[in-house]
Nucleic acid binder design. Structure first.
Length: 685
DNA sequence: AGCACGCCGACT
DNA sequence: GTCGGCGTGCTC
């Protein structure tokens, strides 16, 4: 008997032991078992897990036997298991939950105890293998049957399509199966013999970067992409692979279709909107083939790419790189872990890098890709217009849109109005289950929507308490849409593939790959970003005003009242480090990230009170004899209620013994309080 | 997470 | 009597 350490998808901070008999092992080597997907009985149902370790010692607890190893090969290599383990510990996310999330969706099989069957989510590939060793001494076999058996023996393993292509009929195959001469085998993935073609264009010079961590902020996106092409050609020549990550699917698809022309069958796509079948096929192809290129979202970071050489994280500043659900992780850190483990070349790219990356470059933890001046690649004129009223903005827009130029309008805000306000009661109209004012939206008609829980409400004109007419406060993208429609101006959204001269978007952040160059860009009042109580607000504001400039050919019109801020100063002076240097000083003075590490604890329960949490927290500190702990709270969260549950927060600063928080999590859970632990939160209020 | 079990109020 | 909502406990 052999015992397996299996990570199962349940929020429990330990693995589970199962036994496996020699028969089920089918002569597998130890290395072929670790990293494998495994089906196990669990209570009265079943689960899909990942084998993370093997032992021959009998454990203390009573253990069950596994059901099956459904795959031909492991999903993960030992290296990647170590990387995922490290991340799971860092982010306090259970290992099994981590693995379950990062494997292709089609492999997350579920057991239905009623029908006693596994729901497999994808169709398996069926192949046919010989069940005899030679053709000799087989009586009663037709000429056709003999020829087919000979063919299957020769190939070792064939599909029904291949049998048909060879000119055999499927009924001959059926006869052979009936006679027990051929066996049908199901695989979730069968490696395909790929026909590669690759004609390198003469214009592209292969280029290589030695292993290490790089910051690439010296060139705009359209130049960076050609650097990647050069790197990819160099890697392919050596049989090495590359992984290029974007913060959203639209960017992935745009770049994929562009690079497909260049690299043909060498290139793979991986994100959550491709089919389950394709995801599985691509996973194994990328794992097994030499010299591939993968374009994907952050889920593709966990594919154990064969011979990985270049790992590129595009627009590395993007908030989308932080997964806010379990398993919690930040793509930037995942890239860091993979680089450290494998000694590859990792490139963090963006026009406006994150503060962390900028500081890492300063400290020489990151290397520069080159030393070009990014401002020499943008020639637009910056025009700063103060904001007065929304009516003035409307007038400016109509005037500017008269010119037949390729124009982009950035609205900076979703929805129609920010909220509804009653002058008499002096209150905002709130969501009835959250502590959030409802936002006014307008698609075909007006409606109200809560931005916290997503609940929609009918539009109301008058205050439900005093019946006085309500005032709409603020303006979002839906109001710009209304203006353009009223004036019969042809437009489309930036994210649509439709071709119009006028494009509209909420924000350009994370969309550098989607947006082309515009003659004119109008950025409407991004100032509100500064009013969000978060230490990253200035950085976000800086990015929102800077990125559009690098997409402008002639005129960049920025509507703002913040022209004295360090962000606008730095843009006007065409010197981005002006902003970064000043921001770094401020962060250092206030002891904010990246100079301090924070952990945000959010407790959620109906009718939860500050006292409950203070009790719970103090008991935890005493029971673990924790001293010198720096924290703030417990306090009500900025959004003090979501879906009827009160939210109370504690912020820990530079807390080292993270693993003790598991105990706090479990103590809270015993009282029906859900604790959300966020390591390195992206917002601190 | 996802399931079972048990308590309790509401409704036949 | 029985259905179902939800609080609690447990998982190799």
């Amino acid at each position: 008997m052999i015992y397996l350490d299996i990570a199962l998808p349940i929020p429990h901070f330990s693995n589970f032991t199962y036994k496996v008999s020699q028969g089920k092992l089918k002569n597998m080597e130890k290395e072929e078992i670790i990293g494998r997907r495994v089906l196990v009985p669990f209570r009265n149902y079943g689960l899909t897990g990942i084998v993370v370790d093997i032992s021959e010692e009998k454990p203390d607890v009573e253990v069950k036997e596994i059901i099956d190893f459904p795959d031909k090969e492991p999903l993960f290599t030992k290296e990647y298991i170590d990387i995922v383990k490290e991340l799971s510990e860092y982010y306090l996310s259970p290992l099994g939950m981590f693995f379950y999330y990062i494997i292709p969706e089609g492999l997350r099989w579920e057991y239905n105890p009623k029908t006693k069957r596994w729901i497999k989510k994808v169709q398996e590939d069926k192949v046919y293998v010989p069940n005899v060793l030679t053709l000799a001494d087989i009586p009663n076999l037709s000429q056709k049957g003999r020829e087919l058996l000979e063919y299957i023996l020769e190939r070792g393993e064939v599909t029904a399509e291949e049998i048909k292509e060879e000119g055999f009929s499927l009924s001959s195959l059926k006869t052979l199966i009936k006679k027990g001469l051929v066996k049908e085998v199901s695989y979730i993935f069968r490696e395909e013999a790929k026909k590669y073609f690759l004609k390198q264009k003469k214009t592209v010079k292969p280029y290589s970067l030695p292993s290490g961590k790089y910051l690439y902020n010296t060139e705009v996106f359209r130049k960076r992409i050609f650097t990647y092409i050069s790197l990819f050609y160099d890697a392919i020549r050596k049989g090495e692979s590359s992984l290029l990550i974007f913060p959203n699917i639209k960017s992935v698809e745009t770049v994929y279709s562009f690079l497909k022309k260049e690299f043909g069958d060498k290139i793979f796509l991986y994100h959550d909107r491709i089919s389950n079948k394709e995801k599985i096929r691509n996973w194994f192809s990328i794992k097994n083939l030499n010299g591939t290129i993968t374009i994907g979202t952050y889920t593709s970071l966990f594919i154990p790419v064969k011979n990985l050489r270049y790992l590129i994280l595009e627009e590395e500043y993007s908030d989308a790189y932080k997964n806010r659900r379990t398993p919690k992780f930040d793509a930037r850190r995942v890239v860091f872990s993979i680089q450290k483990k494998k000694g590859i070349t990792a490139i963090y790219s963006s026009t406006t890098p994150s503060m962390e990356s900028y500081l890492a470059l300063k400290k020489k933890i990151f290397l520069p890709v080159n030393r070009k001046n990014i401002f020499s690649q943008a020639k637009g004129k910056i025009q700063i217009v103060p904001f007065e009223t929304f009516n003035a903005v409307k007038k400016l827009l109509l005037e500017e849109l008269k010119e037949n130029k390729k124009t982009l309008i950035i609205a900076n805000k979703k929805g129609f109005s920010s909220f509804l306000f009653c002058d008499v009661c002096e209150t905002e109209i709130m969501c009835n289950q959250c502590d959030v004012p409802v936002k006014v939206h307008k698609d075909d008609k007006y409606y109200l929507k809560c931005s916290a829980c997503g609940k929609k409400y009918q539009y109301i004109k008058n205050c439900p308490d005093c019946e006085n007419p309500l005032k709409e406060v603020g303006f979002g993208i839906d109001k710009i849409v209304e203006l353009l429609k009223k004036n019969n101006i042809q437009f489309s959204f930036l994210e649509d593939s439709k071709k119009t001269d006028i494009k509209l978007t909420v924000s350009l952040l994370g969309k550098e790959a989607i947006a082309s160059i515009f003659d004119k860009i109008i950025n409407i009042y991004p100032d509100f970003i500064l009013s969000i109580p978060d230490y990253k607000s200035e950085e976000k504001f800086f990015r929102s005003i800077t990125i559009p400039f690098f997409k402008t050919k002639d005129r960049y019109i920025l509507i703002t009242n913040e022209s004295d801020s360090k962000a606008v100063e730095s843009l006007k002076n065409k010197n981005l480090s002006l902003f970064y240097e000043r921001e770094i000083l401020e962060r250092k003075e206030l002891d904010l990230p990246p100079f301090a590490r924070y952990i945000l604890l959010t407790f959620e329960k109906k009718n939860l009170e500050i006292e409950d949490i203070r009790d719970l927290f103090n008991k935890w500190i005493i029971s673990h004899k924790i001293s010198n702990i720096q924290y703030e709270g417990p306090l009500y969260a900025r959004i003090s209620k979501i879906r009827g549950k009160n939210r109370i927060q504690i912020i820990l600063k530079n807390f080292e013994k993270k693993e003790l928080l598991i105990d706090l999590y479990e103590n809270a859970l015993k009282k029906g309080i859900k604790l959300n632990i966020e390591i390195d939160p992206k917002e601190i209020k």
